[in-house]
């Protein structure tokens, strides 16, 4: 078991390294078109100046700010509406048709409308992300409330919980794991939408950076931006995991 674990770690470390070496070799021998796919050494050479000049951090900061603002703007109403829909059948009956009808619309498809309504400024990007996050958080929160084990309702009733205490001590904590599942899905969508949102009418951000590298045919810079995207995604989901462990310390690991 132990050696297997160690071996696994070793393999996990060397397989990406091997891929990078293979990429470099293929590029140098001309088997891979260096103009389209570049190669690790060239990307690394671009990486240094881009980092030192502050270009990378600047674009990252702009994107992260949009993601976080949009995430909060979507998650907060998502949780509130999701809890209401989970707890009150009438609210659910009233809103569910609308949610069901609008949820399947790809968020990218309403971007032109968002641009018309919110203009070319920051709010259109933030709103695009917010709407993507909103639906996923809403649906998961509602499902979280509805899937709370009935036994806890009996416990609350038998031990004299008032209506408000039931929400506070059973419904909200019981839905938390699903709420966080919604957050994580929402974060994935936010990363997807930021690139699209920054394609149109943005002057900064990692998405903009990628598209500008495309315009200039600066493949190395594009790869640096893609790597930045990957790191940002990793850090943001790590942040959510970190918060989750603090907020839900009672959740059995790997359960």
């Amino acid at each position: 078991m132990r050696t297997e674990g160690k071996l696994g770690k070793l393999v996990s470390f060397f397989s990406p390294a091997l891929l990078l070496i293979l990429w470099e070799v293929l590029a140098r021998t001309g088997l891979v078109d260096i103009r389209l796919f570049s190669c690790p050494s060239r990307i690394m050479k671009t990486f240094g100046p881009v980092l030192l000049s502050g270009e990378l951090l600047y674009h990252s900061w702009i994107s992260v700010r949009r993601i976080i603002l949009g995430f909060v703007a979507g998650a907060v109403p998502g949780v509130i509406l999701g809890l209401s829909m989970g707890l009150f059948p009438l609210v659910r009956a009233a809103l569910e048709p609308m949610v069901a009808a609008t949820f399947p619309i790809p968020k990218l498809a309403i971007m032109p409308l968002i641009l018309l309504v919110f203009g070319l400024g920051e709010s259109s990007k933030v709103f695009t992300i917010a709407i993507g996050v909103f639906y996923l958080v809403l649906i998961n929160t509602m499902a979280g409330v509805l899937s709370i084990d009935k036994i806890y309702l009996d416990v609350a009733k038998n031990y004299g919980a008032s209506r408000w205490n039931f929400y506070r001590t059973v419904a909200l904590p019981g839905a938390l794991p699903m709420i966080f599942a919604g957050f994580k899905l929402g974060m994935g969508t936010a990363l997807l939408l930021i690139v699209a949102a920054e394609l149109s009418a943005a002057r900064a951000g990692v998405g903009y950076w990628i598209w500008r590298a495309y315009d200039m045919f600066d493949i190395e810079r594009m790869f640096v931006a893609l790597i930045t995207m990957s790191v940002l995604g990793y850090l943001l989901s790590y942040l959510l995991d970190f918060i989750e462990q603090r907020v839900i310390p009672w959740k059995a690991p790997h359960a």
């Binding site: 031990y159 004299g160 001590t169 059973v170 904590p173 019981g174």
Partner: peptide
């Protein structure tokens, strides 16, 4: 069946009824 509130510690579970009152 298992009826302890998973989000509360043992002590908070034991005092649940008292807290509700």
């Amino acid at each position: 069946e298992q009826s302890l509130l998973p989000w509360y510690t043992v002590k908070d579970n034991v005092s649940y009824g008292l807290a509700m009152r």
